[in-house]
Simulated scan of single mutants.
Amino acid sequence: MEIFRDANKETGFLNGQFLLAMPGMEDSRFARSVIYVCAHSEKGAMGLIINRVQDMEFADILVQLGVLDEQQAIMMPERTRDFLVRNGGPVEVRRGFVLHSDDYLTDSTMPVAEEICLTGTVDILRAISGGRGPRKALMTLGYSGWASGQLENEIANNGWLTCQAPHEMLFDTDIDSKYDRILAYMGVDPSRLASVAGHA
């Protein structure tokens, strides 16, 4: 997470953008993944996969952390109970991160891009469970990280497509179609993309 703190002192050109894995992606952990870049600088990059769902449910996490007991978790409003927990990446897989709109701020909240922040403390989970959380939010366990120059090399080697990240596509819960919808938003034909990636 030092990458995140350092990178956001000087906003990198990929901050707040989507990365879409190209069809030729060699690392199966990232196949057809959509990653939201939270931090990017000369020291490296950090992002969250937003189109993979964890088996663990939000209520289970709240109970494990002692935010709620099992009875309170059962009584949560349906909207909160159905809050998706996503698989953010292979780094620190037991640690939670909440990407959210900037209407919720604490001392531990870090700005990511215009109107988007990241909070990694239990306080925001408590706020969400009590209906006092941000207007828009998504939660992941784990994150994706790159060393200095690594992400730039992967992009140059045809590993990733990049594009702006509309808020509605970032926060919506239609996980299964997200990759294809973002390609369509970019005006990319998946069949042509596959043929280009085959020559990488």
Rank of each mutant, 00 (worst) to 15 (best):
R192E: 15
G44D: 00
G16C: 12
G24V: 06
E92F: 06
D27R: 08
T121A: 10
V53D: 02
D123C: 00
A31P: 00
Y185D: 08
V53N: 01
P77E: 09
G66R: 04
T162K: 08
Q54M: 11
A39D: 01
A31E: 11
C117H: 05
T119L: 00
E70G: 03
M46F: 07
G145V: 05
G96W: 03
F18G: 01
N8S: 06
I128P: 10
I35Y: 08
Q64D: 13
M46H: 01
F83V: 05
T11C: 00
G89K: 05
V188T: 07
E115L: 12
E10L: 15
E115C: 05
I61Q: 01
D102F: 04
H167T: 06
Q71S: 11
I155F: 09
A200K: 14
G66M: 09
P134A: 08
M46G: 06
D123S: 11
Y143P: 02
L141R: 05
W160F: 10
P111L: 02
V91M: 10
D176E: 12
R95I: 04
N153G: 13
G131P: 07
T80E: 10
S144V: 06
M169K: 09
M22N: 02
L48V: 11
L65N: 04
T121D: 03
L99P: 01
S195I: 14
A59R: 06
P90V: 05
P90S: 14
M186G: 15
S33W: 01
A7D: 04
I61Y: 04
P23N: 09
H100D: 12
M76G: 07
A45S: 15
I49P: 01
G198V: 09
E152N: 07
C38A: 13
E92D: 08
F83Q: 06
T173N: 10
Q150E: 09
F58L: 10
R126Q: 08
S191I: 14
R79A: 12
I61E: 01
R181V: 06
G96P: 02
Q164C: 10
P77D: 12
K136S: 11
R52G: 01
N51K: 03
L68R: 14
V53M: 11
I35N: 02
M169C: 02
H199T: 14
F18Y: 03
G159Q: 08
I35P: 00
S129N: 11
M139W: 01
E114C: 01
G187N: 06
Q164H: 13
A197G: 06
R181T: 15
D123L: 02
N87W: 07
T173H: 11
Q71E: 12
E78Y: 13
H100C: 06
M75C: 14
L161V: 00
G133D: 05
P134V: 12
R181F: 01
